[in-house]
């Protein structure tokens, strides 16, 4: 564990908590893409199958459990409890356009052709593009609530910090995982235009609006 990975995990945890609290406290999931949340729940499910078979540390197991519980709780709140506030008209990105190619790629490009490894690879590839329905929804509505933009900033920062962690681990341990690194770079690049808008607008107290 290094400080970059720890900060990355905390940023990820912060993002998940911000979103869950936003939906719970405002009793509304307006402006939030339910499809992205379903994809994130799928990412954690396929990545943490070894939760009970491969104990690494209390921290590792606790975080995996928290991520799983919070992501399913968010999906539950969005599609059941506060369903009336779910903006399905703007959340129209076709998930199958992501899941099918990612599933195929996981079969073709992986470290080891075993079920657990292919599912892990699938979760890595899927996580890289899971935010697309959310970014697509914001581009359709042309704006995002400030709290949602904080959520996205924390979520985007998490994988950016992981990239720094991978550079650090490469130089200190000689360790690298090309699949995770390439997918992590794609994932972070997808946030770039949002990061620009966040820093130039939200941090100046303005509403996050996309140029129409």
């Amino acid at each position: 564990m290094n400080i970059f990975r720890l900060l990355g995990d905390l940023s990820h945890l912060l993002a998940i908590i911000i979103l869950l609290l936003k939906i719970w406290r405002t009793r509304s999931c307006a402006g939030v893409s339910g499809k992205s949340q379903i994809l994130f729940a799928l990412v954690f499910t396929t990545r943490y199958l070894d939760l009970f078979t491969n104990f690494i540390s209390m921290y590792n197991s606790a975080m995996k459990l928290i991520y799983l519980v919070c992501s399913y709780a968010t999906v539950f709140l969005m599609y059941f409890k506060f369903k009336a506030t779910y903006d399905s008209n703007h959340d129209t990105f076709r998930m199958e356009f992501l899941v099918v190619p990612v599933g195929g790629l996981a079969f073709l490009v992986n470290h080891d052709f075993t079920p657990l490894e292919i599912l892990w690879t699938f979760s890595i590839y899927l996580e890289a593009v899971a935010i697309l329905p959310q970014l697509f929804m914001i581009s359709k509505t042309g704006e995002a609530e400030t709290i949602t933009s904080h959520y996205l900033f924390a979520l985007g920062s998490y994988r950016a910090l992981y990239i720094v962690n991978w550079v650090f681990r490469f130089y200190t341990e000689g360790f690298f995982d090309l699949i995770a690194i390439v997918a992590g770079c794609v994932q972070t690049i997808l946030y770039c235009d949002f990061f620009y808008l966040y820093i130039t607008k939200v941090l100046k107290g303005k509403q996050l609006t996309l140029p129409a």
């Binding site: 990975r5 995990d9 990820h12 070894d50 491969n54 690494i56 540390s57 590792n60 975080m63 995996k64 991520y67 470290h111 892990w120 992981y162 962690n165 360790f175 690298f176 995982d177 090309l178 699949i179 995770a180």
Partner: peptide, 10 residues
């Protein structure tokens, strides 16, 4: 190449 070590990341 990633040995089992890569699975210690979240």
């Amino acid at each position: 190449v990633s040995d089992d070590d890569s699975k210690d990341e979240l």
